[in-house]
Structure formats: C-alpha cells, structure tokens
C-alpha cells in the first residue's frame, strides 16, 4: 500500500497537468482554427506564440471585475467556482498508466481506484450543470438565464444516452464499474471500440454535448444569446468558466480514450513490460494514453471548426428520439449476444 503522501503528490501533479493542458488547449484551439481556415494563428508571444496562454491569463486577471448590483453576489461567485471544481474532480479516478515501483512498493497512477468509477464520473459531470445554472440564474439577466436553461436541459438529456452507452461497456467487462478493470480488460488490440462502434459514436456525440462544444454549443451561442450563461461575467470569473470548459474537454477525451480506446494500453505493451524496467514501461503507457487524449482534443477542435451549430429543437430531437433509443437498442443487442454466447 502506497503512502498517503504519494496520493497528495499525484493529486497536485494531476491538478497542474489539467490546468496546463487546459491553458494550452486555448492556444491549440486558436492554432487549429487558424490552420483549418488557411491562417497561421497567434505567433507573436514567444516562439510560435507559445506564450500566448500566459498573456491571455494575465489579461484575464488584470481586467476589471464587474459584479452586477442586481445579481446575487454569493451565487454569482459560486457559479464559476463550482463549475471549475467539478471539472477538476473527474480526473481523480482515471488510471493514467501502469503502476510504478519504487523500493518494492507499487504505486498506482490513479488517485482513487473506486469500484463505482463510472458512476462517480456521471455524478460529477451532472454536478457541473449546477455551476452553469447557478451562474446563469444569479446573473439576473435574461440571456444568461436562457443560456443556463439550455445548458441544463441539454446536459440532462444527453446524460441519459451517455449512461446507456456506458452500460453496454459494463456488460463487456463483467459488470465492473471500476475504470481500472475496464482498462485491464482492453489489453493489446482488445479495445472496446471494436465491440462497441455504435456505442462509441453515441458516447462521442454525448461527450460533445456534455462539454458544450460545437455543434452543441447552444448554451453560449453568441449569435443569439450574446454570451449565454456567462454574459454578465468578466475578468477571471469568465476565465474560470472558459478554463473549466477546456478541462472538461480534456477529461472527456481521457474518458473516451479509457473507455473505448484501451486507456494506456497499446499493442506490444506486454512485450515491452518483459524487456524494459517497470517504471520506463509505466511512463511509456502514460505517453500512450496522453497521445490518445491529445488526438481526441484535436478531434473536438476539428469538429468545432467544421460543423455549424444545431438548432435547439434538432438538438432535443437528436438526444431523445435518436440517441436514447439507439443506445437502448445497442445495450439490448450487446446483452443478447453476450447471453447467447455465454450460455
């Protein structure tokens, strides 16, 4: 059993990595957007514009902080804080790599291997909507309120289909909700995407909706709602909202990689484990997971700069009338096939 100090260090590292990746996601987003539109994007701050996130952060901190006098001050502050906290909480249960070994003690690269892993993710993700809802409600502004209502109804609708598509995965891994067990069950090429292509598509679409990304960015659709739920926010509180969204994107990518693309597994990892020292293999596996994560972050951005926004009724119809029945069907078929072959 590893000492508690290791967990605290791991939490600190994960916190810093989440923030760092979120910061550089803003940079990557601008670069990807620029490249997809035949531009070159930010290149003034530092070499290739690499210091741009720092400049943006400083700008956010130095801006005037406005709290509308008709708003509920405490809730107004609570909104972005809560959104940020819930975004950071999800990273706690993702297995980042194979265990490391120092002095005969095994260190799991996972903050908490709880046996209700996926349930925890779904729970924390649902809590995130409170941040948006409270923020939008406390602003006392109709645009903010409309954005917040859209966000909450969208997230609640897509959580159902998301949960249903996850159940099909649970059927494959003998009903274990622990993410560690799910990753362990995907050794080599044995990735869940091969057994659950439909489930993967459903999950991906729902992840886009949960992260409020285009084509489902209705909560902040600037053309109709000004800024959506963060219309009244300024300075670092706006920064927290935007930042948390990028952290959500990072975590969503991590979860997609973990559930469907074998997590830190890749073909040949078991062979490497026999020839290389444990810690090196562990680092390679972490690298593999992060490669997958970065790919999915890129996909998030790629889709954002390709597809226009859905209309609200189209969004609701897609969620309730297409994805939910499809996910249930997928679950039934998976269950049926498994029962047929196991008996």
């Amino acid at each position: 059993m590893e000492p508690i100090i290791f967990k605290i260090i791991l939490v600190a590292i994960m916190f810093l990595i989440s923030l760092g990746i979120a910061a550089y996601s803003t940079y990557a987003e601008r670069k990807v957007a620029a490249f997809l539109q035949d531009r070159i994007g930010p290149d003034r701050a530092g070499p290739y514009g690499l210091l741009q996130p720092i400049a943006d952060g400083v700008k956010m901190f130095l801006k005037e902080e406005i709290i509308p006098n008709v708003s509920d001050k405490w809730l107004f502050i609570l909104g972005p804080s809560m959104f940020m906290v819930t975004a950071l909480m999800t990273s706690a249960i993702i297995p980042w790599g194979r265990p490391m070994e120092f002095g005969g003690v095994t260190y799991n690269l996972q903050v908490a291997d709880i046996n209700i892993g996926i349930l925890y993710i779904m729970g924390v993700l649902s809590l995130g909507v409170y941040g948006i809802m409270i923020g939008g409600w406390a602003s006392n502004n109709k645009y903010a309120l409309l954005g917040a209502i859209r966000a909450s109804s969208q997230m609640i609708s897509y959580e159902l289909a998301m949960g249903m598509s996850i159940i099909s995965i649970l059927l494959l891994t003998d009903g274990s909700l622990s993410l560690n067990a799910i990753v362990e069950g995907q050794k080599g090429w044995n990735w869940n995407i091969l057994y659950q292509p439909v489930g993967f598509i459903i999950f991906l679409v729902c992840a886009f909706a949960e992260a409020n990304r285009t084509p489902f960015d209705l909560p902040e659709s600037e053309s109709e709602l000004i800024g959506g739920y963060h219309t009244e926010y300024s300075s670092m509180k706006l920064g927290l909202f935007l930042f948390a969204e990028y952290i959500n994107m990072f975590i969503s990518s991590a979860i997609i990689s973990t559930l469907y693309f074998g997590g830190y597994n890749f073909p040949g990892l078991d062979y490497l484990a026999t020839v290389l020292p444990t810690n090196v293999v562990s680092l390679i596996s972490v690298g593999a997971l992060f490669t997958k994560i970065f790919f999915f972050i890129f996909v998030f951005m790629w889709v954002r700069w390709t597809i226009p926004r859905f209309r609200y009724d189209q969004l609701m119809r897609l969620g309730w009338q297409v994805l939910l029945p499809l996910a249930i069907l997928n679950m039934l078929v998976t269950g049926g096939i498994l029962t047929f072959f196991n008996s």
Binding site: V32, L36, Q37, R39, D43, W302, T306, I307
Partner: peptide
C-alpha cells in the same frame, strides 16, 4: 448526418495542410 459530417471533416483537414494566406 454522419456521412455529411465526415465529408465536411475531410474538407477541413485538407485545409490544415494548405499554404497559408497570412502575410506576417
């Protein structure tokens, strides 16, 4: 929608490698 989405994404990814119009 998926075929249309994928063909759209194919178009945008092509632009990723195109010559950029920006003049520094």
């Amino acid at each position: 929608y998926l075929p249309a989405v994928f063909s759209g994404m194919a178009i945008t990814i092509k632009h990723l490698f195109r010559k950029k119009a920006t003049v520094k």
